[in-house]
Amino acid sequence: MIVDTAAGVLGGVLLLRFWMQLIRVRPPASVGQFTYTLSDWLVLPLRRVVPGMRGYDWASLIGAFLVVLAASSVLLLMGASGQAVVLYALYRFLTWIVYGFMGLLIIEVIFSWINPHAPLAPFVHALNEPLLRPLRRVIPPLGGLDITVLVAFILLQIALYILRQIF
């Protein structure tokens, strides 16, 4: 449980770092310092081997997968095959991504209800905008109420169901 929790936090930070750099969002100082301090020990050495290309920070993404692979390798101790461990790690990696997007959507909803002018609200909104923009083109506001966050959340739930069925 401790290994899984530590891997989840580190993997989430690495995925956040990848997403921030992919969509070119500058984090607030506190979030940036936390993210870079926690992940530089893994990302900087990986960048020597896997440089970034076309705006993608591949080292962060590969680092997140390596973290989930290391956490999943506990199954090797229980007698699982190497192929099963890699498939399980891929499944967990993809579910981490989906749950990360779901968490960002929940945080945005909480900000919109409690304090839309909170210091972190624009940052969270910018992280969610690439997910919500295509939906906002298709789904108009209903009576002044934007339901695209709900639709995105439902689509992410469907993605989780499909991942469970595939793996």
Rank of each mutant, 00 (worst) to 15 (best):
P134W: 14
I114W: 15
M78T: 07
A89S: 05
V25A: 03
F101M: 06
I147E: 05
L44T: 06
R92C: 00
R133P: 01
A64Q: 04
Y56V: 12
Y161A: 09
N115K: 14
T37M: 05
T35L: 10
I23A: 06
R26M: 11
F153D: 00
L150G: 04
R26A: 13
R137A: 13
Y99R: 05
I107F: 07
W19V: 03
F93Y: 14
P119K: 15
T148V: 08
V74R: 13
A7V: 07
D4V: 13
A64G: 02
V151T: 09
V50I: 14
A6L: 11
A152N: 06
I110D: 03
G32D: 03
Q83I: 03
R164M: 11
Y36T: 02
L142F: 15
P141R: 15
R54G: 07
L16F: 08
I2A: 14
I166Y: 12
V124M: 01
T95F: 07
V86T: 04
L155T: 08
A80D: 03
R26T: 14
G103L: 06
R164S: 06
G55D: 06
G79I: 08
R17D: 00
L15F: 07
D4Q: 13
L14S: 06
V43G: 00
L75H: 11
L150T: 08
V49A: 14
L142C: 04
I147P: 00
F111W: 14
S81L: 05
I147M: 14
I154V: 15
A71E: 08
D146N: 11
L104G: 02
R133K: 11
P140N: 12
M53G: 04
L38T: 10
L145K: 09
V50S: 06
R164K: 13
S73I: 01
P141G: 12
L76A: 13
W19A: 02
D57G: 04
V149A: 12
Q33L: 11
D4F: 15
M53F: 14
G55V: 01
M20S: 02
G32Q: 05
L142D: 09
R164W: 11
P116E: 12
V67M: 02
P134F: 13
L15H: 05
I23W: 03
T95P: 00
P119C: 06
A7I: 02
M53L: 14
P134S: 11
L10N: 01
L10V: 10
V50F: 15
L22W: 10
L145A: 13
